[in-house]
Design a protein around this nucleic acid. Structure first.
Lengths: 224, 224
DNA sequence: ACTTAGATTTCGCCG
DNA sequence: CGGCGAAGTCTAAGT
């Protein structure tokens, strides 16, 4: 990885066009051709400009040009170098993957193992119940043996309600599942999603991953 | 901005938990307390780990700990330093904002100035036509003087169709606009969005920003 | 190869 | 400050 600290101005043309006036910035150039431009202010996560590989990098004449074929046209990042303050290269060796726990998939697994958190007396029939427009996260039977489709999100927005509504519409075409109910289970449910869901007769359940796993005691406020 | 290149392992706990095994990485520490962790492989745009300000950074004993209050709990980034290969700080001065052109807003402006690109004989009634669930991008009259609501996207997915459908449902509650038509205008319309739109009687128009502005000649394939 | 859905999405605007 | 929509979203998985 090459790290250049330089006073520079930058123009990008591609899916849109942008301009950055002259300032001191960090240019991060990766071994695979990826380029990112950073400034001390602003976002810690998103560069001011960037280009993902594969790229062609041309350097010289007080300028670095990063080019990339994007369909018919060309994406282009033109970096006008006024003054180089530092220019170092570090060998970082092989990649090391990030191991994650706590994403939506993990919540689905935990709820599949303990479906009663989705509703009283719920028993799992199957995960990833297939419909012709995609799989429903969980299909359960409730305490009265009724069918219930469960949609799981980490954060549930109005889109999640629309998605579950589409699934229910397909599922209920089967006469045997004509009265299939719907439950939206999420770590966070946005207020508008809750309003729309309840207007459509869809139940909402907020769940905590650690509690579902049994790693943490439920708050006393639950079911209060 | 402080740039540390070090062999390190990293654990994050917060909205989820992650682990990174020992490897050489770049630690980018901004003046505002923002921290990002980079490796030579992988994304050019997203760090392996990060924490946005405000943070508290504690350093010492072969370890850097970045902490942040996140509601009741605490987000924590623990960086175990095995070997420091480089540690430099650069003053980058004041911020310099990015100027953009070509985002959705610009497409809306261009189509408002030339609504005929949305449909034959279209005349603009107003931009940001208000409904009780938010504003419709454009409200037009078509060549037969009928009302038409236009939803504009840079890339139109199935969500855009759902959004316009919700708007039309509200608009048509007004008896005077009972037959209001819908048009989805975008630089790119995804196939599934087109299918759903046409099933709902919503017209689809693909537009090019430069053409709408008159900066580029239309392709011969238009209207072919 | 293309499409879809998730993301510690992040970011910006507007109430 | 919270909610909502856009993003050069990016990225991984499934078809």
């Amino acid at each position: 990885m090459r790290l250049i600290v330089a006073r520079c101005s930058i123009d990008y043309t591609g899916r849109l066009t942008t301009h950055l006036p002259e300032a001191v910035r960090l240019l991060m150039i990766k071994a695979d051709g990826g380029v990112a431009v950073w400034h001390d202010g602003g976002s810690s996560v998103k560069p001011q400009n960037w280009m993902t590989p594969p790229t062609v990098i041309e350097e010289g004449d007080g300028q670095i040009v990063v080019r990339k074929l994007a369909g018919v046209t060309e994406d282009r990042l033109e970096i006008g170098i006024v003054e180089v303050l530092s220019d170092v290269t570090h060998d970082m060796g092989e990649a090391a993957a990030l191991e994650k726990d706590g994403v939506e998939r993990d919540l689905q697994e935990a709820l599949a193992a303990a479906p009663a958190w989705c509703g009283e007396g719920f028993r799992l029939v199957r995960r990833e119940w297939p419909t012709d427009i995609g799989p429903v996260d969980l299909m359960c039977r409730d305490h009265q043996d009724g069918w219930t489709a469960v949609e799981i999100k980490r954060v549930a927005t109005i889109d999640a309600v629309e998605q579950l509504t589409r699934y229910l519409e397909r599922i209920r075409r089967d006469p045997a599942m004509e009265f299939c109910a719907g439950v939206l289970a999420a770590q966070v449910i946005k207020p508008q999603a809750r309003v729309l869901a309840e207007a459509r007769g869809i139940a909402c359940v907020e769940v905590d991953l650690d509690v579902v796993r049994g790693d943490r005691e439920p708050e006393l406020t639950l079911f209060a």
